[in-house]
Design a protein around this nucleic acid. Structure first.
Lengths: 230, 230
DNA sequence: CGCATCTTTTCACTGACTGCAAACTTGTAT
DNA sequence: ATACAAGTTTGCAGTCAGTGAAAAGATGCG
């Protein structure tokens, strides 16, 4: 088949085969996301996704291991980037602060595209099963970060539970805060970062309880501690 | 069929129906865990589990929504019990301590049957997908505990992120510690509790890093610190 | 063109899971 | 005891997810 007259602007590094494959993959993913966003996860069959993407059902499984897999967007590169960012923090910074900083930064960057991010979070809220697909990846993510913390503290990631604990706790703060932030009518999107920082502050203070709001019964006014940096 | 001579010591609060249901449920769960621990998740079919539990395959699905569901370590009753236990802690105890206490207690009680429990933990390690199924349940569990913490602290679980954070962090400590404990050759099963307590202590101290062990670079092997713990 | 290689499709199959109606068990009022 | 209401288990028939194998169709290349 001769090349069509309109020369492709792209420097066609990849052969026709590779291009077609990518195209097919994208078509399937796009069809899956569109259909699921429309009707919900269990109201969409693989056959329908395949049909919408103009491929056979079997081809769907040539590209994705499961229906959920087609909806995932997990990036190995991001793990590496985040590890590098953690390594780049000042060496004398306390581990929790360092992890907090990179996780908050990551979130802030992601929130720049609220459309996609909101949709993704929403999807995880309404289909917690999707969490399962990512579980292995997140576990790996935590492990890698823990290794970096181990380097920074001079501990052994295998022997000492501390690095893993710091990372796990930090992740928990992020998850919990996002969930809480989603659940409340959030006045402004910007406050997520503030909430995160407040959460990390609270952990850094050993999770001592904050002063409750003024109760009608017996107000015992403990002084509010000034919320500084993490 | 007459009751056997050995009269049941239990004060039969529940009718025969309810008792049989629990019995069936337990039988299915036990069969599922045992078989999966033996052969791995994908080498066991629902039919086999049902057969091992002496019920029809259809009955399996009357009790559990999926194969994975039968392996979930938490049910509604347990959530209620744990919430009650948390409510029963001294009112002046710091929230983190209270949650730590009930979670450690729960774990210790479960570890009384190391066969099953070990298998269960192992399963989660080798089949991270199971987290997906648990995600919804655990989320609910966390939510209920957070509500109790909210009661205890006089905060609003909806408005203040603190209760959810405490619970989420505590859960993270437990998960992380179990995982770490599993990964290391554990000399004795009893040290899990100690590790958990150490982890919670560390959090209570704001996750400040512990002192690192002597560095291997210099050929001056300082005496090993008499670390009883970890 | 002709051949090796890769991709897609078809087919047949196992296993998860659901709805429905029949059969059976238990609680209870008579 | 008996009978009836209500709950539980089961078999059956069917849909959908997911896999292996081999035929059929593209593509790359000499």
């Amino acid at each position: 088949m001769g090349m069509s007259a309109g020369a492709v602007a792209e420097p066609t590094e990849l052969g026709l085969r590779e291009r077609k494959k990518r195209q097919t993959r994208d078509a399937i993913r796009e069809a899956a996301v569109r259909l699921v966003a429309d009707r919900g996860l269990e109201r969409v069959t693989v056959d329908e996704i395949a049909q919408a993407a103009n491929v056979s059902p079997r081809t769907f499984f040539n590209y994705f291991r499961s229906k959920e897999d087609a909806l995932a967007g997990i990036d190995k590169d991001e793990i590496e980037e985040t590890c590098a960012a953690l390594r780049a923090r000042p060496a004398d910074e306390p581990p929790l602060s360092a992890v907090a900083a990179i996780l908050v930064g990551r979130l802030e960057r992601k929130m720049l595209d609220p459309q996609i991010q909101q949709a993704r979070v929403q999807m995880h809220q309404s289909h917690p099963q999707l969490f399962g697909v990512h579980a292995a990846t997140w576990r790996n993510f935590e492990r890698r970060l823990a290794e970096v913390i181990a380097e920074r503290t001079g501990l052994s990631a295998d022997e000492d539970p501390y690095p893993a604990t710091v990372v796990a706790v930090a992740m928990a703060v992020v998850r919990s805060t996002i969930s809480h932030w989603q659940a409340t009518e959030n006045p402004s999107a910007a406050t997520l970062s503030e909430n995160l920082r407040a959460g990390f502050d609270s952990v850094a203070r050993g999770l001592t309880p904050p002063a409750p709001p003024p109760e009608p019964s017996g107000p015992s006014p403990a002084e509010r501690s000034p919320t500084g940096a993490v």
